[in-house]
Amino acid sequence: MTALEPVPRRLLRDRAYDALLEAIVSGELSPGQKLSDAQLAEQLGLSRAPVRQALARLADERLVVSKPQSYTRVAPVVEQEIRDALAVVRALHALAVREAVPRLTEAHLTRMRDANDAFVRALDAEDASAAIAADDALHAVPIEVCGNRALAETIGRYTPLLRRLERRRFSGAAARASAARHDALIAACAAGATDEAVELSGEIWGGLELTG
């Protein structure tokens, strides 16, 4: 099974985006690979319009590069761009945690615990895509609770650029450290220990740092 299979004809632009993002993150579409909207549309079982819209969004997120009337390619991994994005995302997640901790309810904490349980199950199954989804679900709770729309939109804007880092980390043994840090973060949130929770959030996102 590959990411580039026909998708249901609903929310076509978003479905095309999700499929193409997964293919880029997994390496099925490799850096520098030329992209044809017609070919991708055929693979996905879609018309060219939603595929073009998805490619435009990926270009805005710097995962695709294009030159009008010339080419569209998967973007190379540019380390400085990723470091810049990571610095922004890390800082904003810490801010979300700081604002959210005093407002978290037991229901919110349960969602975070359930997400980390799903994260561990995904690691056990060696399913990096499911691990990323579970990680997203956990960190979405403080973002939602803090209620800062600009923060949420900025995190959403820059997170896709980090997906290849997340997949690499969640495919290796180091991912177990993320699960342990998640547990510690949830415990700090439950205790109302805001400063500790903020520090742990920084450690979690700091674990994605580029090496080499």
Rank of each mutant, 00 (worst) to 15 (best):
R149T: 15
V120S: 04
P6T: 02
E81D: 12
A75D: 14
A191S: 06
L46T: 02
A197S: 10
W205E: 14
E22L: 02
A184S: 13
E209W: 11
D127G: 01
A140G: 14
T194W: 03
R111F: 07
Y17F: 10
A180C: 10
A85K: 00
G192E: 00
Q53A: 11
I204T: 15
C146P: 01
E79Q: 12
G147N: 07
L29V: 09
E42R: 08
T154V: 14
L12R: 13
D18Y: 12
G156A: 00
M112I: 00
T2Y: 08
V25Y: 00
A180I: 08
V88E: 09
S26P: 00
E28D: 12
L92P: 04
Q69G: 08
V198H: 09
K34S: 14
V77G: 06
R10V: 11
E209K: 06
L21T: 07
P160Y: 05
L58I: 04
G192L: 01
A94E: 15
W205L: 10
E61C: 03
L20W: 05
S70R: 05
E42D: 14
D135Q: 06
P31M: 00
N148K: 06
E79D: 10
A177M: 09
R121V: 03
S66D: 11
C146F: 04
S129K: 05
L95M: 14
A96Y: 03
R163P: 03
L200I: 15
P8M: 00
L138V: 13
I132L: 11
S171T: 12
W205F: 14
T110K: 07
L29D: 11
G206V: 04
S129T: 13
D135R: 02
A41R: 02
P142V: 01
R98Y: 09
A131Y: 02
S30V: 14
A125N: 07
A85T: 10
E203T: 13
L109V: 07
E126K: 09
V7A: 06
E144F: 07
L11E: 15
S70F: 13
L20Y: 03
L165D: 08
S129G: 10
R48S: 13
L46G: 01
L210N: 04
L20I: 10
L12A: 14
D18S: 12
E28H: 05
L161N: 01
E28R: 06
A56N: 09
A41D: 12
